[in-house]
Amino acid sequence: MFEATELNDRNRRAERLWRWLFGMMTGLLIVPVVLILGVLIVKGGPALSIDFLFTEPTDGMRAGGVFPALIGTIWLVAVALLVSVPIGVAAAVYLSEYAPDNWLTRLINLCIINLAGVPSIVHALFGVGAFVLFFKFGISILAASCTLAVLTLPVVIVATRESLQAVPQAFREACWNMGATRWQTIRRVVLPNSISGILTGVILEVSRTTGETAPIMFTGAVFLLPFLPQSVFDPTMAMSLHLFVVSTQVPGVPDELPYGVALVLIGMVLCMNALSIAFRVYLRGKKKW
């Protein structure tokens, strides 16, 4: 008759303990998410309405809606995407597919990682110096979006590089051995099999900048603007800055208004994340190896 030994039993008890411990940590992780969303919904829910989304702020931002800020944030993120995606993807393709493995490449990679750690307020100052003043974009969507783009470039590059590296090296060598150039290999084999990962990763990273405040408040976003931006050279309102303003800068704002703004802001970020994750799940189903 088969019997579990003393050791077997001890292992089994330890196994249960570890499993429980890891599970607990995961549970803890959910707590702040639930709390934040809960508080926002309870306190900000009453402020929400179709009008809130589609009207301008009135009464010195103490009433009315968030429409100009909503539109402004969409502008900012969209232009930031247009700037950072081509540059970031091209740089990642170079680093992953062309660059020789030498000290210079390693130095560049190190710089990229460090750039990701630069605080966003420093990016803001850089944006003022470079885009507002040097390139003379002025306080504008373009300057703010370029600043956001610089801020996200490191993560865009890293996300893209990871997607590229996920394509097995054997595919590349098989192509090269047929006489394909690097570019032909990238174009025919590497990109078709990584583009979905690249796009979803990049959209996810860039949409995170929706909530950034510091980099845009000196470069393109303003407190209050009664009209919508007409081009990328106009300044604009933005959700993140609007939230900062109504919660700290204007006296006598009704309680639920800042929570309502925060709820809309979080809603925007979640929507973009959800879209990009859905896109990724859909494309993963079509993976070819």
Binding site: F171, W176, M178, G179, N193, W289
Partner: peptide, 15 residues
């Protein structure tokens, strides 16, 4: 390389 065909030990069917 285009004039030399190569077959590796483990087949590589391109995706």
């Amino acid at each position: 390389r285009s004039r030399i065909g190569v077959v590796f030990p483990l087949p590589v069917g391109l995706p």
